[in-house]
Simulated assay, not measured.
Amino acid sequence: MFDAKKLTEEQVDSIKSWAAEGAQLADIQKRMEDEMEIRLTYMDTRFLVLDLGIELRNLAEEAKQKEAEEAAADPAQAGNADDLTEDDLEILPPTPQGSGAVRVTVDEIARPGVMASGRVTFADGNGGMWYVDEGGRLGIDPDVDGYRPTEADVLAFQRELQATMENR
């Protein structure tokens, strides 16, 4: 077993900064070998991290948690993009195509089981597949599970989709 006391303060600081940047055990193990020429087993790396009192960050989980907190704090995010209907499109005034931060594309051949489909990218960079099912209902299947676009993005999406479909 590796003794943490064999490390210099600089080495300990490096390991702590790697962990703060989101490095996981395998990353720390590899960087210790590459940068410090210290070869450890995965288990020894785990014990070393525990001995040094380092908490590993799960950046993906932190991002999901932050997104959930922002959505809870922003009531505009409470709207459900899956509940859009074709009738919703008809009440919106058209805007010139490409006029907003929301981008819409239409598939040349609709996906199986739907009348029309394509992709949407919202202002914040998130996106997903949109579709109009055989019942005429508009829906969005986001790339990130649980993602809800803002109300402004939903309205911009509807306008862009309407303009795109009129220009076809």
Rank of each mutant, 00 (worst) to 15 (best):
M1E: 04
M1G: 15
M1R: 00
D3A: 09
A4R: 14
K5M: 09
K6R: 14
T8S: 15
E10R: 13
V12L: 00
D13A: 15
D13V: 05
S14L: 13
I15D: 01
E21H: 01
Q24H: 11
D27Y: 06
I28C: 03
Q29A: 03
R31N: 06
E33I: 04
M36K: 09
L40A: 04
T45G: 08
T45W: 02
T45A: 14
R46Y: 09
F47D: 02
V49M: 04
L50C: 01
D51V: 01
G53K: 13
G53H: 12
E55Q: 13
E55N: 12
E55T: 14
L56S: 11
L56W: 04
L56P: 04
N58M: 07
L59N: 12
A60Y: 04
A60V: 12
E61K: 15
E61M: 13
E62I: 06
Q65L: 14
Q65S: 09
Q65M: 11
Q65A: 14
E67A: 15
A68M: 05
E69P: 02
E69I: 00
E70A: 13
A72P: 08
A72C: 01
D74E: 08
P75K: 13
A76F: 05
A78W: 07
G79I: 15
D82G: 06
D83R: 14
D83E: 14
T85D: 09
E86T: 02
D87I: 02
D88V: 00
D88Y: 05
L89E: 05
L89H: 10
L89C: 07
E90D: 08
P93W: 01
P93T: 13
Q97L: 15
G98N: 14
G100W: 12
G100F: 13
A101C: 03
V104A: 11
T105G: 10
T105C: 12
D107F: 09
E108Y: 05
I109Q: 11
I109A: 12
R111H: 02
P112L: 09
G113I: 01
G113H: 04
S117D: 05
S117R: 07
G118P: 06
G118D: 07
V120G: 05
V120Y: 06
T121F: 00
T121C: 03
F122A: 06
A123W: 02
N126H: 14
G127H: 07
G127W: 11
G128C: 02
G128P: 06
Y131Q: 01
Y131K: 03
D133C: 12
R137M: 15
G139W: 10
P142S: 11
P142V: 09
P142L: 03
D143F: 06
D145T: 07
G146R: 06
G146M: 12
Y147E: 10
R148N: 13
T150G: 15
E151T: 14
V154G: 08
L155W: 01
Q158L: 15
R159E: 02
Q162E: 02
T164V: 04
T164K: 13
N167E: 12
R168W: 01
